[in-house]
Design a protein around this nucleic acid. Structure first.
Length: 811
DNA sequence: CGCCTAAAATAG
DNA sequence: TATTTTAGGCGC
């Protein structure tokens, strides 16, 4: 038997299966998808079985073939589907196959190959001499080399000599970080009558022992954890020991899952009556769930329209069909409230995966899935890889969120993977958003996804009234404060009424752009239609995409004002200003400084919910998913900061943020107001956000995208090169560009090579090439060939190249 | 000629 | 990626 194994060496040269002989004793447990240890060159490495050959094995065995050394798990961590998906990802995203595999399984399963020192038979007490290291090795027989270097730095240099003289040898060991939590459980060994007799026979003063036995008498056949006996019944360890000694009970170690929600009870929430709108959108979704064939939906519903209830119903019906469901949420909105909602509805059938879990907890949640002990997974991006065998539904909430794009290799987008997975399983894909990504909405209007609309809020609550304040007028009226008169007035009003507020600082724009404070003019690139970024060092304004640069003007080109300069502001500054203007105001500030500690995020929100603050002040993180009944005002200090980012999605992101923030106010009985402060009130993203008009925004933004040649009209590939020498990295970028140019379609545009916006990172200079294409059916193959050609050239250099398909961050 | 460092080759 | 092999540079 021959196993084809991909090994944990994530480079292109080794990105293919290697053949290994499977020794007879491993043939019963090895499988496609198994995690194995194999010798590779002089080392031992972890690898994954991607194929097994039983016939024509002899031919292959003639070559120099090595044996599989070990199979690491009883059941393979990779299902056939995941393996197939990883192969697709490696082609689609041009990453090593093994990298795609490792993205799918918990980090603790990634084994590390280590070099160890072992004592040979020649080493005994006599040969140890006065060496501390040799004595230690004589006792333990082997030690990790890294440990030796740390503990015996003086003797480390002597090691090669001892190896040469045959006292010591080196070997490799692959170790993973799997740990399993054990808990002690108590079981009664007595029959009913025996138990009664035993209770009577106990001496009067054996009070605790009696209580234990009575507990077993009361709950016949049940087992109790030692911890629970102690916490709830006040029974200490020693009476249990005594009972065990009598042979009446047994204390056993049982493996348990690490569950951060173990001690929480989740209230079962009754299913609500669906609104007519909800029923309307549910009908086709549920029909697809029933038919068990591929279907994809975009649920476009305003904030507060009750999308979550639609998701929950679709999931419930999927489970009733005997299939499994994956529910993806952006990391930020995977709050305890959300978890509560799912646990309340689906109880123990839910596994939760998010970044706040420890690696052990994450592993345990994952094991619940692969052991088929749960039917629903709620999680962030990587939950799309849940090892289910019969996925019937994939829901992507807040579909437009950029956190679905992974920014390291493999640079996948969870939405793309979800589409693949839904097709593969004849499953239903349901994406929901109040502000869909342009790419998604465009495909929905062209029929690739079925578009479902929920334009009204539940209970016909009105959308909040949006007030746009032109900050240029404030300046003219001698108001130099960061709060407009309107916002100032409304804050005072809410303070008087004892209602709560959310004040939002659009900190994305902290990277500085150049703007005229008098007329709102911002400097933009003449080629790319994006804002220029201010460069302090040489006082220039510069385009991040194409490299266009001009000197920072002293006067505004539009209105000649001198008030043209770079722009930015911080949460602490806002907090100080609030305290100054409204003495006694209670501000809960949420930013990197106040939320870095684990659990502090939640703590602050609870504080706000409990009414211990008048204002919740923060950046994006407060704009999503939060639902506070007493919030009646949402204020945005400077809407422009995200509008003028050097990013073709700047307008889209601004529209999304304004809509999300607006959605925070007036979700319940109290009606809400939204105040948007801006220097460019005439910008379409602000006008349409004010009117809650997504379709109008979509129309305007699509015109821009068509004009500038960005998605959805063109798709992008960003190729980034880095090297410590500028001339070398430039040559590398040109080598790649020169290979690609003659082989691309006529309609494909290759931009660059130009210096990357962040031109130097960790003392390496960065250049980039951007491909804009409309129709390149074989692009992945072309890029793979180009990569091979590049690597041929790169043999003498050490230029690093990364390829980002459909990039989000263009830095 | 031997020793050291750096680049190149290789991994089943 | 980590390791071994090979090549070449340099002092004596």
């Amino acid at each position: 038997m021959i196993a084809q194994v991909i090994v944990d060496v994530p480079v292109n040269r080794t990105n293919r299966p290697f053949d290994y002989r499977v020794p007879d004793w491993l043939t019963p447990i090895i499988n496609v998808g198994s995690r194995v240890i194999v010798p590779f060159g002089p080392r031992k490495l972890q690898g994954y079985v991607v194929g097994i050959l039983t016939q024509s094995a002899e031919a292959l065995e003639s070559t120099r073939i090595k044996d599989v050394e070990q199979v690491l798990d009883d059941t393979p961590p990779l299902t056939a589907e995941l393996l197939k998906m990883s192969e697709w990802m490696s082609k689609q995203y041009l990453c090593p196959w093994v990298t795609a595999v490792q993205a799918m399984i918990p980090a603790v399963l990634k084994g590390k190959s280590e070099k160890w020192l072992t004592a040979t038979d020649a080493l005994d007490e006599e040969t140890c001499g006065n060496s501390g290291l040799l004595w230690e090795l004589n006792r333990k027989r082997h030690l990790p080399l890294a440990e030796v270097e740390k503990q015996f730095p003086d003797e480390y240099m002597l090691v090669p000599g001892w190896i040469h003289s045959g006292l010591l040898a080196t070997e490799y060991q692959v170790t993973d970080r799997i740990t399993r939590k054990q808990q002690s459980f108590v079981k009664c060994l007595l029959e009913k009558e025996q138990l009664a007799e035993a209770i009577v026979s106990l001496p009067a003063r054996a009070e605790q022992m009696r209580r234990v036995l009575l507990l077993f008498a009361e709950h016949e056949g049940q087992t109790f954890s030692v911890q629970m006996m102690r916490d709830e019944h006040g029974i200490s360890r020693s009476p249990l020991k005594s009972l065990e000694a009598k042979g009446w009970i047994a204390i056993e170690q049982v493996e348990v899952y690490r569950d951060p929600y173990a001690n929480r009870r989740f209230a079962e929430k009754p299913k609500p009556q669906f609104t007519p709108l909800q029923q309307e959108v549910l009908a086709p979704i549920l029909q697809s769930v029933q038919s068990q064939s591929y279907a994809s939906y975009l649920l476009h519903g305003v904030t507060g329209s009750g999308k979550t209830e639609v998701y929950l119903e679709a999931i419930e019906q999927t489970l009733e069909k005997g299939r499994e469901a994956i529910f993806l949420v952006p990391e930020i909105s995977l709050t305890p409230q959300m978890v509560e909602r799912f646990k309340g509805r689906f109880g123990a059938d839910v596994a939760v995966l998010h970044s706040a879990l420890s690696s052990g907890e994450r592993f345990d949640e994952w094991r619940k899935i692969i052991r088929k002990q749960v039917k629903v997974v709620v999680g962030a991006r990587s939950a799309i890889f849940a090892p289910f065998q019969n996925v019937g539904l994939i829901v992507i909430d807040e579909e437009h969120e950029s956190s679905y794009k992974q920014e390291e290799t493999p640079r996948y987008h969870a939405r793309e993977v979800a589409i693949w997975r839904a097709k593969e399983n004849d499953a239903v894909l349901l994406m929901g958003s109040a502000t869909p990504a342009l790419e998604t909405y465009a495909l929905a209007t062209r029929g690739r996804y079925t578009l479902l609309q929920m334009p009204d809020r539940v209970g016909n609550r009105p959308m909040p009234e949006v007030h746009v304040v032109d900050m240029r007028e404030e300046l003219q009226a001698q108001n130099r404060s960061m709060f407009s008169r309107k916002l100032h007035e409304m804050i005072e009003d809410r303070l008087r009424k004892g209602e709560q507020m959310v004040i939002f600082l659009n900190r994305r724009g902290f990277s500085t752009f150049v703007m005229c404070r008098s007329c709102g003019y911002t400097m933009r690139c003449i080629h790319c239609d994006i804002s220029l970024t201010y460069h302090k060092t040489n006082h220039t304004a510069r385009c991040h995409y194409c490299g266009y640069t001009i000197a920072q003007p002293a006067h505004c080109p539009e209105c000649q004002s001198e008030h043209i300069r770079f722009f930015g502001t911080g949460t602490q500054k806002v907090e100080a200003e609030l305290a100054k203007l409204f003495p006694g105001i209670r501000v809960i500030r949420m930013d990197v400084d106040t939320t870095s500690r684990k659990g502090s995020h939640e703590e602050l929100l609870n504080k706000f919910r409990a009414g211990q603050g008048d204002v919740l002040l923060g950046t994006q993180m407060i704009a999503k998913g939060l639902d506070f009944p007493r919030v009646t005002l949402a204020g945005i200090i400077a809407a422009d900061t995200s509008l003028h980012l050097p990013d073709f999605r700047a307008a889209e992101k601004t529209f999304q943020l304004l809509t999300q923030v607006g959605g925070r106010a007036g979700r319940h009985e109290l009606e809400g107001d939204v105040v948007i402060q801006t220097y460019t009130p005439e910008h379409y993203s602000i006008i349409h956000a004010t009117r809650h008009d997504y379709p109008a925004f979509y129309q305007d933004e699509m015109l821009q995208r068509r004009r500038t040649g960005y998605p959805p009209y063109f798709r992008l590939v960003l190729i980034t090169f880095s090297h410590e020498d500028v001339p070398v990295v430039i040559r590398g970028a040109h080598t790649m560009a020169d290979y690609l140019r003659p082989r691309m379609a006529q309609t494909t545009i290759l931009l660059g090579p130009v210096a990357s916006p962040i031109a130097r990172v960790k003392d390496r200079f960065r250049f980039q090439v951007m491909l804009k294409y409309r129709d390149e059916p074989h692009l992945a193959e072309l890029l793979a060939q180009a990569t091979a050609a590049f690597e041929e050239w790169n043999k003498q250099q050490k230029v690093l190249m990364t390829i980002d398909v459909d990039p989000y961050v263009l830095l």
